[in-house]
């Protein structure tokens, strides 16, 4: 498929899902009501639902999905491994730990944005730790190992916090947060996450050329004038900003960064640079769709986005493994 057609199709898909995300939900709001709201003549309640509830939710779903898809494509391109995902470098695990601590200590109850801020702080601390462990010039292997170690450490601390939580309510609050969701978020969350997410995107989108060259291996890429140390630093910083901010406002949403690049790779001619923006659009579409599913399947049971994503993602992943195995034999 030519990149232009793919871009047009994916953009259209995102727009349709975004619109659906505005109109579908507990309260039925038709397109006409929405148009009236836009022109400032809608009913007060409709306007409130659209601008205060549905808009931040749809914006966050799109931003979170795009960040995860983009970071996943960048990470797979850098490591030249289709199984890589943004969580691999420990950013999401550490962000989750920061959030859990904010919930546990009651900081989150006292100040609404304490949770995302703590999550962000931990995400960046994780990146600094990785740089210290893997060194500024290390290979991709040391980066993976450092990431796994930090993820494990963050997981251990998260378990400890849960273990020590004073009462079952605190524990269940933490558990629910960790499942990941974009429900009940406000424009304040959007405003907090958006600048960092945009910065992260800006960094990650510069990587296309280097990732293309890396198709030939690190040695050949470097000899073609690609500064590998800088590429790695940009990748880490971009992922920390985009995925860290996404996790901070939406919790841990898995599988997007893994599955989306995998699905879109054949459609992009396997070019890592094309896959970057394709995965950003694809990730936005996938999370928007999953969030719609959350609202429509069991509207009364507060189904969590991360749970639905895993339920969609894991079988899809199994299918991909099965397909890859068949191709290899």
């Amino acid at each position: 498929m030519s990149p232009r057609i793919l871009a047009a199709l994916l953009s259209l898909l995102v727009l349709v899902l975004f619109a659906a995300s505005m109109f579908l939900g507990h309260a039925a709001i038709g397109p006409m009501d929405a148009l009236r709201t836009l022109s400032g003549q809608g009913e007060e309640l409709t306007t409130l639902i659209l601008t205060q509830i549905r808009l931040p939710r749809a914006l966050l779903a799109a931003m979170v999905g795009a960040s995860l898809g983009l970071a996943g494509a960048a990470m797979q391109g850098y490591l030249r491994n289709p199984l890589a995902e943004p969580g691999l470098i420990g950013v999401s695990g550490s962000a989750a730990l920061g959030a859990v601590i904010a919930l546990q200590t009651g900081l989150a109850a006292g100040f609404a944005l304490a949770l995302p801020l703590m999550a962000l702080g931990f995400a960046f601390a994780a990146v600094l730790l990785i740089l210290a462990l893997a060194g500024p010039r290390g290979s991709s292997l040391t980066l993976i190992l450092a990431g796994i170690a930090i993820s494990a450490l963050a997981g251990a601390f998260t378990a400890l916090v849960l273990n020590l939580s004073p009462n079952p309510y605190a524990a269940s609050e933490i558990m629910f947060w960790m499942m990941g969701s974009v429900a009940d978020r406000s424009m304040a969350h959007v405003a907090l996450a958006a600048p960092l997410i945009l910065l992260g995107w800006a960094a990650l989108f510069t990587l296309g050329r280097g990732l293309d060259a890396l198709t030939l291996g690190e040695d050949a890429a470097q000899a073609m004038g690609i500064p590998l140390s800088r590429l790695r630093l940009t990748l880490l910083a971009g992922t920390a900003a985009a995925v860290g901010a996404a996790t901070a406002v939406a919790g841990a949403v898995g599988f997007v960064g893994l599955i989306v690049p995998h699905i879109l790779r054949p459609l992009t001619g396997a070019r890592p640079s094309t896959l970057l923006w394709a995965s950003a659009l694809g990730g936005a579409a996938m999370v928007l769709a999953a969030d719609l599913a959350v609202r429509l399947i069991l509207p009364d049971r507060d189904l969590k986005l991360g749970v639905v994503m895993a339920l969609i993602g894991a079988p899809l992943f199994l299918h991909l493994i099965y397909k890859t195995r068949r191709e290899m034999t």
Binding site: R80, T215, G217, A270
Partner: peptide, 16 residues
């Protein structure tokens, strides 16, 4: 722009 390098290890990471 001066030298092209063909490494011994033949890497083609993606099905391009």
């Amino acid at each position: 722009a001066t030298a092209a390098w063909l490494p011994q290890k033949r890497e083609i990471a993606w099905p391009v």
